[in-house]
Computed example of a mutant assay.
Amino acid sequence: MKQYLLSVYQPEGTPPPPEVLEGIMRDLDALNARMRAAGAWVFSGGLNAPGTATVVRLKEGEVLTTDGPFLEGKEYLGGFTIVNAPDLDAALAWGRDLARATTLPIEVRPFAGTPDGAAGADGAGD
Score class of each variant (00 low, 15 high):
Ala90Phe: 04
Pro115Cys: 00
Pro11Trp: 00
Leu6His: 04
Asp29Cys: 04
Gly68Arg: 11
Asn32Ser: 11
Val108Asp: 02
Thr54Lys: 14
Gly46Leu: 02
Gly45Cys: 07
Gly51Ile: 02
Phe80Val: 03
Arg100Phe: 02
Val8Ile: 15
Asn84Cys: 03
Tyr9Val: 01
Ala37Tyr: 07
Gly125Phe: 02
Tyr4Lys: 08
Phe80Lys: 07
Ala85Pro: 13
Glu19Ala: 12
Leu47Ser: 03
Ala93Met: 09
Leu71Phe: 08
Leu5Asp: 04
Gly117Trp: 09
Glu72Asp: 10
Glu19Gln: 14
Glu75Arg: 07
Gly123Tyr: 06
Gly125Thr: 05
Leu28Asp: 12
Leu28Ser: 12
Val63Ser: 06
Ala85Gln: 08
Val42Asn: 06
Thr65Arg: 15
Met35Thr: 07
Glu22Gln: 15
Asp122Gln: 10
Thr52Gln: 11
Thr54Cys: 02
Leu104Phe: 05
Val83Gly: 03
Ala93His: 14
Asp116Pro: 09
Leu31Gly: 11
Glu107Ala: 13
Ala121Tyr: 09
Ala119Phe: 08
Ala30Leu: 13
Leu47His: 05
Asp67Phe: 01
Gly79Arg: 08
Pro18Glu: 00
Arg96Trp: 06
Ala124Gln: 15
Lys59Ile: 02
Pro115Asn: 00
Pro17Trp: 00
Gly117Ser: 05
Gly78Val: 02
Thr114Asn: 11
Arg34Gly: 10
Asn84His: 14
Gly13Ala: 01
Arg57Asn: 02
Asn32Glu: 10
Ala33Val: 07
Ala38Glu: 13
Pro15Leu: 01
Met25Pro: 10
Asp126Glu: 12
Val42Leu: 08
Pro86Asp: 02
Gly73His: 06
Val55His: 12
Asp116Arg: 13
Arg57Val: 01
Leu88Asp: 09
Gly113Ala: 05
Gly123Pro: 11
Pro86Arg: 14
Asp126His: 13
Val56Glu: 01
Gly61Leu: 03
Val63Met: 07
Asp67Met: 01
Glu62His: 13
Pro50Arg: 03
Ala119Gln: 12
Ala101Arg: 14
Thr103Gln: 15
Ala121His: 13
Leu77Phe: 06
Arg100Tyr: 06
Ala118Thr: 14
Gly23Leu: 08
Gly125Trp: 04
Ala118Ser: 15
Asp89Arg: 14
Met35Cys: 14
Thr102Ala: 04
Ala33Gln: 15
Ala118Cys: 12
Ser7Cys: 08
Arg109Thr: 13
Gly120Ile: 10
Ala38His: 05
Thr114Trp: 03
Pro50Phe: 00
Leu88Glu: 14
Thr66Val: 09
Phe43Tyr: 10
Asp116Ser: 13
Ala91Met: 04
Met1Lys: 11
Thr103Pro: 08
Met35Arg: 09
Leu92Ser: 03
Gly45Trp: 04
Val55Asp: 05
Arg34His: 09
Trp94Lys: 09
Leu92Asn: 11
